[in-house]
Every structure is written in C-alpha cells, then in structure tokens.
C-alpha cells in the first residue's frame, strides 16, 4: 500500500459517501444517472469475485464490501425507494449503456492477463469502469443545473483514478515485476474522459458560478 493508492481509495470512498449524502439528505437523485450506478455495481461485482476466496487484508475486504453494498444500495434506492425513485430523470438518462457492457466484454475476451473466468471478469471490470461514467457525463450536459453534491461526486470519482495512475507509476519504479498495462491504458482513458469535466468544474469554482457543461 502506498500513499497514492490510499489517497485514491479514500477519494473513491468519499465520492460514494457524497452520493449517499446527496440522496439521503435531499431524498432526490435528480441529476444522477441510474445507468452509471448500474454499471458501477456490475464493475464491483465482477471485480471482487475473489472476495470470498482470497483474503488480502482486512482493509481490502472491508473496502470491497463497502463498494459493493453502497453501489447496490444506490441502484436499489433509485429503482425502488418510493420517494427517491420519482426524482430520477428517466427521460434524460438515455445513454445506451448496454453497448458499453458489450464492448467491455468483447475487449475482455480479447485482451486479458490469462484466459480464466476470474481474469476475464477482472479485465471486463477494468474496461467497464473506464467508460461507466459516460451516461453520467451525458446526463450532466443535459440537466442544466448541476447541484453541488452531484458535481463533487463526479469530481472525486474522476480524481480517484488519477491517484491510481500515480500509484501504478510508483509501483512500477519500486516493484520489479509490476507491470499492469490493462489498468494503465483503461485508467488513462477513464481519467481522460473527465478532462473536460475537470476543466468546467475548475471554471465554475474559479468564477464562483454554477457548474454547467456545454451541450
């Protein structure tokens, strides 16, 4: 564990807490893409298959449980909670996220470390996570007013993978056999997708105006 990875995990955890806070405090999920939340639940379920078989550390196991349970809780909330579900922008959240799932699956079948169920699922989860934010970014462009918590949620979600890239650079130079090109490339794509969001987020913060993404 190095400081970059710990910072990345904490930023990721914080983004989930901000989203839970927004939904719980405002009893609303307006501006949140259910499709992105479903993709994230799928990412965690396919990545943490080893949750019950391999014990790496208490921290690792606890964090996996937190990510899986929070993503499922958010999807349940947006689909079934009597109050929250009515605030979901169903007609705005129209990204065809099944194409992202299919594309990631094809990529995982083509490019993986080893052709085993677990490694293909792991590669699938890495590729899917890289594009899972797309429905959310499209929804932000459509929904005119982005409330602060939603903006902060997306910001921390983008920042966490940037910390992971620093972690991979650090591990590359400190550990001999550490070379993971799959998460490298996917992580760069993922963080790149946030580039324009980070730019407009910075502008809104600098000019102290509401965050608005150009359509």
């Amino acid at each position: 564990m190095n400081v970059f990875r710990f910072a990345g995990d904490m930023t990721h955890l914080f983004s989930v807490l901000v989203l839970l806070l927004k939904i719980y405090a405002t009893k609303s999920c307006s501006g949140i893409s259910l499709k992105t939340q479903e993709l994230y639940a799928l990412v965690f379920l396919t990545r943490y298959l080893d949750l019950l078989t391999d014990f790496i550390s208490l921290y690792n196991t606890v964090m996996k449980l937190v990510f899986i349970s929070s993503s499922l809780a958010i999807v349940w909330c947006m689909r079934a909670h009597p109050v929250v579900r009515r605030t979901y922008d169903k007609d705005q959240d129209t990204f065809r996220h099944y194409t992202l799932v299919a594309g990631s699956l094809v990529l995982a079948l083509l490019f993986h470390d080893r052709f085993t169920i677990r490694e293909v699922c792991w590669a699938f989860s890495i590729y899917l996570e890289a594009v899972a934010i797309l429905p959310q970014l499209v929804l932000l462009q459509r929904s005119r007013n982005v409330d602060n918590l939603t903006g902060q949620y997306v910001f921390f979600l983008g920042a966490y993978r940037a910390f992971y890239i620093l972690n991979w650079i650090y591990r590359y130079f400190t550990e001999q056999h550490f070379s993971r090109w799959i998460p490298w490339i996917a992580g760069l794509v993922q963080t790149g997708l946030y580039a324009d969001f980070f730019y407009y987020y910075y502008l809104s913060w600098k000019n102290n105006v509401k965050l608005q993404l150009p359509a």
Binding site: D54, N60, M63, K64, D113, W122, N167, P183
Partner: peptide
C-alpha cells in the same frame, strides 16, 4: 507454475 496474478488493488 504460473504465479497467480493476485489483484491486491481495489
């Protein structure tokens, strides 16, 4: 044998 690529990251 092929060492298990343990994914120790989240």
């Amino acid at each position: 044998e092929v060492e298990e690529t343990a994914h120790d990251e989240l």
